[in-house]
């Protein structure tokens, strides 16, 4: 299995390459990608340096152009595809049907991957993208159980990539309007979820309140650790019970599943976190490189080491990790 790693900027890309990434993925500095955050991502110049740096060291570069253009933005998405193709990147990570069609016609020589934002969760959906756009790899939404991933590997017309580590989307990616409903900022069209400009921390007698576009997302007592207020990870009230009604602040970590994923024929494992730091990328990629190498050497003897798990927990939301939907009880 190949290790696909996040690069939010050039220093992160260098860290990922240095720590053993087989491929890095990045986005341009606008709403054409799903991590459209202030100060993040690449312009033409830094992207050129990034491609040169990675290619000189035998590491592939993928560009995520994985949001959905509305008519007013269409040319920006076309330009992003053209720019990426001219940079000589190894693959485009795309979601929108129009953008996939454009890339397949205009730059047939550049590999196309289906973004997780494309929401393909079954073999017929994958066939649709293979038949119509020659898509060679799909990133699977974080909603499939391990058994379903294994089954899909058997039936899939293309290579499959799964999320291994990082922030956990609870909803099917590409189909979640919770942020748009609450803040007006949408992952699909603006590449933003629960954006920082909508967040407000307020000290009150009841503790620290965190609000997203004025909606109370959570309240923390003294000494309670407060994570970033993603709309799906707050504490809400249902039938008089107040709890994390959708999901707790936790990160996905599938180190324990590596032999099963490799055995199923999964082609690549992806680490989430372009919005994180150089230190995050360096640590996460080192752990995963070591784990993948260990698993490849001897899958039957492979066990996730305590120090790997501790290092990843330290990088996680709420210092917690979960197997997420891979593990049936989570569902």
């Amino acid at each position: 299995m190949k290790l696909v790693c996040p690069a939010g900027n050039l220093p992160m890309l260098k860290a990922a390459v240095g720590a053993g990434a087989d491929a890095v993925y990045l986005g341009f500095r606008d709403d054409t990608n799903a991590r459209h955050f202030a100060g993040l991502n690449f312009n033409d110049g830094s992207a050129r340096k990034a491609v040169a740096h990675a290619h000189e060291r035998g590491c592939e570069v993928y560009v995520a152009i994985n949001t959905y253009p509305r008519p007013a933005g269409w040319r920006r998405w076309q330009r992003a595809v053209d720019t990426a193709a001219e940079l000589g990147v190894d693959a485009l990570i795309l979601a929108d049907l129009g953008v996939l069609d454009y890339a397949a016609r205009k730059h047939p020589g550049v590999r196309r991957h289906l973004s997780v934002q494309g929401s393909a969760t079954n073999s017929e959906a994958l066939r649709f993208y293979a038949d119509n756009f020659g898509v060679e790899r799909a990133v699977l939404p974080r909603v499939l159980s391990l058994a379903q991933v294994e089954r899909l590997c058997e039936d899939s017309p293309m290579a499959l990539e799964v999320f291994g580590f990082g922030s956990l989307c609870v909803m099917v990616e590409g189909r979640c309007l919770l942020s748009a409903y609450t803040t007006g900022e949408s992952p699909n069209t603006e590449g933003a979820c629960s954006p920082a400009q909508a967040v407000r921390w307020v000290e009150s007698d009841a503790g620290t309140e965190v609000r997203l576009n004025d909606v109370l997302i959570d309240r923390f007592g003294p000494g309670e650790s407060a994570g970033y207020p993603v709309v799906c990870k707050g504490r809400f009230t249902v039938n008089n019970a107040t709890y994390h009604a959708l999901e707790e602040p936790t990160s996905l970590n599938t180190l324990a599943l590596l032999p099963a994923l490799a055995g199923a024929g999964v082609a690549a494992v992806k680490l989430e976190g372009r919005q994180r730091s150089v230190a995050y990328v360096d640590k996460a990629v080192r752990v995963w490189r070591e784990a993948l190498d260990s698993c490849h050497r001897d899958p039957t003897a492979y066990r996730p080491r305590g120090e790997w798990m501790a290092a990843l927990a330290g990088l996680s939301e709420g210092a917690q990790t979960t197997l997420g939907a891979y593990d049936r009880p989570w569902q």
Binding site: A125, R127, Y129
Partner: peptide, 25 residues
């Protein structure tokens, strides 16, 4: 979902595209 789209298109059947197909352009 696109799986249903593929099945219907294969059969040459007309269909309605639901809101979750993400048709933005």
């Amino acid at each position: 979902d696109m799986g249903a789209v593929r099945l219907l298109a294969e059969e040459g059947l007309p269909f309605v595209g639901g809101a979750s197909l993400n048709l933005y352009n």
